[in-house]
């Protein structure tokens, strides 16, 4: 049975897209059939990490939502098109798909103006799970608590909230956790990202868990090397021994074993 996992953060800049891409890649590396849906229609970005640009992209989630094509046609098979980035070579032959959002500004403004049929999105994802025989469907959401995000929470089996260790994120995460509980999301995890290395990570984990009553799947260090690399590759595949990569693999392990 497939699991839908929404990756969310209350504010932007938490490293959500990078985390989602790396997490999905690591789960795919474990031999699972995995797809990522970029529902951050307002500001899509995850495709870049997989080497996709507007030209290579072909059909997008926007085409499906506009009724122009079935969702299967949108799924881009990453295992077959890893590109030339060093880290992504590890994904050759893996079962990993990306359902990208359109980069076209006209498409973006159209969906922002008209919205989209929530039921259609839901049905599309269901179709996708079946057609690709997915083990895990990752949803990369837009930051904040808009209607699309709330929907993605409703259709998810697991909600992973990414937060940075700062007061604004703490406050917003508290609200998100309450909302998710109100919507009876079956399982929840917190992921602390961009933690300064001078923190005691065990203490951070314990404090966050105690504050929200939610299990912390990982505390990941602020990763300057990732900034250095830009968005050209899947970091944890390129630098598997880096502390950040080790952390993200731990989160993947949590998903595989417990969720």
């Amino acid at each position: 049975m497939s699991k839908t996992i929404s990756i969310h953060s209350f504010r932007g800049g938490t490293g959500k897209s990078n985390t989602t891409a790396n997490l999905a890649a690591q789960v795919a590396m474990a031999g699972k059939r995995v797809a990522i849906v970029d529902t951050d229609i307002q500001s899509p970005g995850i495709h870049v990490l997989f080497g996709l640009d507007e030209k290579k992209m072909g059909k997008t989630l926007n085409d499906f939502l506009a009724g122009r094509c079935p969702i299967e046609e949108v799924a881009f098979n990453i295992g077959e098109h890893v590109g030339d980035a060093q880290g992504r070579q590890a994904l050759i032959g893996k079962d990993l798909w990306l359902i990208p959002s359109s980069m076209n500004s006209g498409e973006i403004s159209k969906i922002l103006r008209d919205g989209y049929d929530v039921n259609m999105m839901n049905k599309g994802l269901k179709t996708l799970r079946k057609a690709l025989e997915l083990d895990y469907l990752f949803i990369d959401t837009h930051p904040g608590l808009n209607e699309e995000t709330l929907l993605s929470i409703v259709i998810s089996d697991v909600l992973i909230i990414i937060l940075r260790p700062d007061q604004q994120d703490f406050q917003g995460t508290a609200v998100t956790v309450d909302i998710a509980r109100s919507l009876d999301v079956p399982a929840m995890r917190l992921l602390v990202n961009k933690a300064l290395t001078r923190y005691d990570f065990d203490q951070v984990r314990a404090t966050v868990e105690a504050s929200y009553g939610v299990k912390v799947s990982g505390v990941l260090p602020l990763n300057e090397d990732m900034v250095d690399m830009g968005s050209a590759d899947i970091f944890s595949l390129r630098y598997p021994d880096h502390p950040w990569s080790v952390g993200i693999k731990g989160v993947a392990q949590d998903i595989l074993e417990n969720l």
């Binding site: 409703v154 909302i179 109100s182 300064l196 001078r198 923190y199 005691d200």
Partner: peptide, 30 residues
């Protein structure tokens, strides 16, 4: 700094949750 402490404004938290859960959309969704 090493000892992280988390301060959450509970009043603000409740207000924000209520404003979100109070919408028709939310009721429908729930």
């Amino acid at each position: 700094v090493r000892m992280l402490s988390i301060q959450i404004d509970e009043v603000k938290r409740q207000e924000e949750v209520e404003s979100l859960t109070g919408s028709d959309f939310f009721a429908e969704l729930k």
